[in-house]
Design a protein around this nucleic acid. Structure first.
Lengths: 226, 226
DNA sequence: TGCATTCTCAAAGAAGTACTTGAATAGCCT
DNA sequence: AGGCTATTCAAGTACTTCTTTGAGAATGCA
C-alpha cells in the first residue's frame, strides 16, 4: 500500500487506456463507434484496413475495456462501452485541436476551409425543429442512421444525395449533419446543395455531440425522445 | 481533401496525443503536473526515475503539446499546457476506473480500502470554510502547496504531520486533501489524525478537481479567490 | 451433416519505445 | 573567464507494436 511498485502498476493501468487510443486506426474506429454499433466488416471498410487487422485493433480496444461486443447470428457488433469513452474521445480531440502543432494543418488539408460562422448551433436547430421550418438531413452511412440519429432527421447518405435531392421540398432550408467536426460528409453535402441553389447550412459538430447534449434522438428500433 | 491518406494522417495526429499518455511514468508526470508547475529534478524524484529518463518523458509530453516550460535561472519548470489537458487526464482516469478490469484491484492495493461515505464533498467544505468551523490541511509536498492550494488551507506535508500535529487547535474537525482520488497522502493523514484522537475526514478527490470546479484557490504569489 | 459466412488467432518481419550510461550544452555566479 | 548546476542529448540494448498472410473456430442455414 502506497509503495512505488504498486503505484507504477496503477499508473501503468491508466496508460493502458491511453495505449488503446494511441494508434490512428483505433482512433478512427472509436470515432465511427461513437456514432453507434457496427460489425467488423463495415468497420474494416470505414478505416480502410483488412478485416484481420481491424479485428486485431478491435480486440485491443476491447481488452482495454473501451468497446464491448454483441453477437447477432454470424455478425459481431462492436460498440463503445459507455458514454465515458465518448467523453474521453471528445477530450482527446479537444487537446489535439488546442495543442497539437500540426493538427490544424492536417485538419484543413482533410476538411478544406470551413466557415464556422455558417453553422447552425444545437440550440438554434432545436428551436427550428420545434418551429418545423427546416429539413434536417443525416448524410452519414445508412447503418449509422439506423443505430441512432437526430429525432426528425431524414437519412440521405452523402453518396446518394445528388440523386435524392429532387425529393426534398423546395424553399425550405436544409441543415445537414454527419459524424462530427472531423467529418467531411456534411461539408460535401452543403457544397452540393448550394450548387443546386438550395439554402443549406451545417450543424455544429455532429450526431455524437448532439446525443451527449441530451437532445432528442431516435434509432430505427427504439425511440428515445427526451 | 477527404481522401484516405489525409484522413489517416489526421487521425494519426489524434493518436499522437494518446501516445504521449500511453506510458505509466508519463501518466504519473501529468498527475503531478495537474497540481501545478514543477522542475525536472523534483519530477524525477516524484516518479522514481532518473533525471535523464524523466527529461526524456517530459520532452515527449512537450512534443505532443501537453506540457510547456518556463525557465527561471538554471531551473526549467514544466506545467500542463492548459486545463484541457487536465480534463483529458480526468476523462482518462474516469474510463480506466469504469472499464479497466484490473484497475480496481490495482487501486485497492495501492490505496487500501477507502470509505467513500466518510469523505467531505466540495460543496460541504465550501460551506464549512465560510462558517469557519473546520481546519483544512494540504498534505501534499510543499512545492505543490506553493504552486496552488485551496484558499484558506494550511500546508503540512504528510511526512511532517506527526511532528506538527500539536500546533493544530484541538476540538476542531480537520479536513485533509491531496492530489486526487489516486493519492494516498490524505488517507495516511486521516489515519494518523484519528489514531491521535482527532476528528478528521478526507476531501473528495483532490486539489485539481477543486480548482476545475472553479472554487477559490490561492498560490504563494498570486491569490485567485473567485 | 456439410458448407458458407464471419470473425479471430498465430507467426513473422519491420518499426518503434523505454531505460541506462556517460557526454554535451546552456545559463548562473563569483 | 572559469567553474557550477540543471537539464538535454546520443548510443545501445531489450522489449513491444503493427501489419500481412494463411489457418482455425463459431455460428447459421440448407
Amino acid at each position: 500500500m502506497g509503495d512505488r511498485v504498486t503505484k507504477d502498476a496503477l499508473f501503468d493501468g491508466f496508460a493502458d487506456i491511453a495505449k488503446a487510443l494511441a494508434n490512428g486506426r483505433r482512433a478512427e474506429l472509436i470515432d465511427v463507434l461513437a456514432q453507434g454499433e457496427r460489425h467488423v466488416e463495415e468497420l474494416a471498410a470505414e478505416i480502410g484496413q483488412s478485416v484481420a487487422n481491424t479485428s486485431f485493433h478491435l480486440r485491443t480496444l476491447a481488452a482495454a475495456g473501451l468497446v464491448v461486443t454483441r453477437r447477432d447470428k454470424t455478425r459481431i457488433y462492436y460498440r463503445c462501452a459507455s458514454d465515458r469513452v465518448i467523453d474521453l474521445w471528445f477530450a482527446l480531440r479537444d487537446v489535439a485541436a488546442t495543442h497539437h502543432a500540426e493538427l490544424d494543418e492536417l485538419a484543413t488539408r482533410y476538411l478544406g476551409h470551413r466557415d464556422e460562422m455558417d453553422q447552425v448551433s444545437r440550440a438554434e436547430l432545436t428551436a427550428r425543429l420545434d418551429a418545423g421550418d427546416v429539413i434536417v438531413v443525416d448524410v452519414r452511412p445508412a447503418a449509422e442512421y439506423a443505430a441512432g440519429h437526430i429525432a426528425g432527421a431524414r437519412s440521405i447518405p452523402s453518396d446518394r444525395l445528388a440523386r435524392e435531392l429532387r425529393n426534398l421540398p423546395p424553399d425550405v432550408e436544409v441543415v445537414a449533419y454527419c459524424r462530427g467536426p472531423y467529418c467531411v460528409f456534411a461539408d460535401e453535402a452543403i457544397r452540393l446543395l448550394r450548387r443546386r441553389g438550395r439554402t443549406a447550412r451545417r450543424l455544429e459538430d455532429g450526431f455524437p455531440e448532439w446525443r451527449r447534449a441530451n437532445l432528442p434522438v431516435q434509432s430505427l428500433s427504439i425511440t428515445n425522445a427526451l
